[in-house]
Structures are given as structure tokens and as C-alpha cells.
Simulated scan of single mutants.
Amino acid sequence: MLKKIVIIGPESTGKSNLCSALARHYKTGWCPEYARSYLMENGKDYTYEDLLVIAKGQLALEDQYSHQLRSAGMSPLFIDTDMYVMKVWCEFVFNKCHRFILDAIAARRYDLYLLCNTDLPWVQDALREYPDPETREELFRIYRSLLIDQQTPWVEIKGLGTNRIRAAIKAVDGLLNS
């Protein structure tokens, strides 16, 4: 049975790198964040409606990777971003959230969340918006509150370099060996 593990957290907290490292460690696949490719192609000046397009694209990408791994008999699938991230993004930027995203949160099931802490140094790139530590911490608290108030197990991941990866592997092993 395919286990799905979602990596979430504020910008520049190592989500994509962690997904990649975990997929290599477990010899499986990972689903990238759809928003990055969408914004690189369409520009970083996005609208509220763009976030709905991005959310639908993320779910389609997740379904594609899920199907591929199931067909290959592989597990787990590491997912860089889910609808909680879309909810936070919508509400933080536009003070409202699409019903589609809220419904997807209610409908989708995952086996584990890894919440990336903001203890990594900020790395600027063309798409990132919130480099200041106060905003990063506020976003982290929002993600933590969302995870506390839902049923899926979750683990906060922190530390630099191999310590961060080791903490994530320990959390994933806990799920896989239970």
C-alpha cells in the first residue's frame, strides 16, 4: 500500500531538498511543488484565481506520481506541498481561501506530515516572497496550528545538513515500522 508523506513549511525551509534526499534514501519517488513550474512559466505576479489553478495542478501532479509509484509497487511517496500550503498561501496573501482547496483538505488522506522549521538560513530565489524572520516565524506558527488541529501524525523537522535528514528519516522509519 502506498504511504504518502507530505513535507510542508514556510519558504526556504528545505522542503524540496528534503523530499529529494528522502526519495533517494528510500529508493522511491517524490512529487515536486507545482507552483514553482507554474510561476516560472507564467510570472510571479499571481492572482487569487491563479492559486486555484496551482492547487488543481498540484493535486493532478500528486495523483500522477501516486499512480506511477503504485504501478511500480514502490512506497512511500514524498510530496512537496499539499492543500494546507495552498490554504495558508491564499489566506496569508488574499485573506480568503477557495472552497475547492478546503474540500480537498477534507477529502485527501496522508500518512505523515513533516513540518520544516525555519532554522535554515534564508536563500533568495526568483519566487520567494518573505525573507524577514518575523514573517517566516508567523507562517511556521500557522502551519503548526493547522497540523495540531488535524488527525494525521506529524513531526517537526529541524537541524542543519545531515541532522535534518536524519531527523526526517527517523520520523519516516517510525511510520513505516509501525
Rank of each mutant, 00 (worst) to 15 (best):
D50S: 11
E91N: 15
A126I: 05
D173W: 10
P76L: 09
G174E: 12
R99N: 04
K44E: 10
M1R: 13
Y26V: 01
D50V: 13
V85G: 12
P76E: 09
Y65C: 13
A60K: 14
Y65V: 11
D45A: 08
M1L: 13
G174W: 11
N17R: 10
W89M: 04
R136S: 05
E41K: 14
D45Y: 10
N177P: 04
L160S: 08
S71V: 12
E33K: 13
Q68G: 01
Q150G: 08
Y34Q: 02
A107Q: 14
P10H: 09
K56A: 15
V53K: 14
L18T: 03
Y65E: 08
P133C: 06
L39V: 06
L18V: 09
A72W: 13
A72M: 12
V6P: 02
G9H: 02
G9W: 02
E134D: 15
R70G: 02
S66L: 05
R99W: 11
V93I: 10
I101M: 06
I79Y: 05
E91M: 06
F94A: 02
S16K: 10
C116K: 03
L112H: 01
T152G: 04
H25R: 04
C90R: 02
D119T: 04
G73Y: 11
L39I: 11
V93R: 09
L69I: 03
L120Y: 02
L77K: 09
V155A: 05
E49R: 10
I79F: 11
L127E: 04
R141A: 12
G159R: 04
R166N: 15
L39A: 12
F140V: 06
L61E: 06
R164I: 11
D119A: 08
L160W: 09
G174S: 12
L120G: 06
V88N: 04
G9F: 04
D173H: 14
